[in-house]
Amino acid sequence: MNLTVRESLIAFRRAPLLSALSVTTIAFSLFVVGLFGLVAVNLQHALQDVAERVEIVAYLLPGTPIESITLAEKDIEAFPEVQSAAYVSEDSALARAHAELVEFRDVLQELERNPLPASIEVKLKPRFRDVDHVNEVADRLRGFGFVDDVRFGRDWVEKLDRLRGIAAAVGLVVGAAFAVVAIIIIGTTIRMAVLQRSREIAIMRLVGATNGFIRRPFLLQGAIKGMLGGLVAIGLSYGAYTLINRWLIQAAFFSKEQAVAIVGFGTLIGLFGSAASVGRHLRRV
């Protein structure tokens, strides 16, 4: 194993230009994947912010006794989809209107009677904020006898669903395309490395080296190149992120897990790319 590590490091020293070239090409293709990833991450954040606002409001019939409301609140909070259920009395609805609708303050002031109904505001857990679940919970809310009407932004929720679908599809397609490009690039550079060392490989076979033994340094070398490419890509993405943040918009960067995933992905690409080209070479000779 020690020998494998040494052999693969020697390869870097022997062909520094080729190694640097493959690391940079891998880095750039992963960087493009990373940029799309950043867009996806930020889109996801934006969608989450919007999704935060997905709320179902159940308006209550006037004169509903507070005991039934408290009980219902408990029941609703026990729904598996529900994150929170909050009772808003007529008075607090009015107070809120006062605070939020500054322009109508005078109108509100002049009212003799509070026209606003009491309500229960229901917020769903993040993973249930889609059309189907919202509809289901709304139906269940209508089942309460003292619920007058149930409202939620149907259009909003549907648009959100569609946006999510598009974001996921685009991310997947672009990511897969660039992953394929990166695999081909790594495969090619490893093939060049293999050809460059075909004399050495022939001698190894002559003195009785097994295919596995010959393959291992190349695999390790490919994995190291992929990993370095991933690290450089993260660095480039961070640069891009800093620029965007300073000049354009407040954006989010990858989480630690996502960064690790990118580097891991680079490593895997390196491994597969080199496995493919070494395997082909060994079979041919």
Binding site: R199, E200, A202, I203, R205, L206, V207, G208, N211
Partner: peptide, 24 residues
Amino acid sequence: RPRDVPMLRRRLGIVFQDFRLLED
């Protein structure tokens, strides 16, 4: 079998006209 070949070669020594040494 392919994996027997290395085992066979370990029992042989082989030299050629062009030496086949690693230059580095």
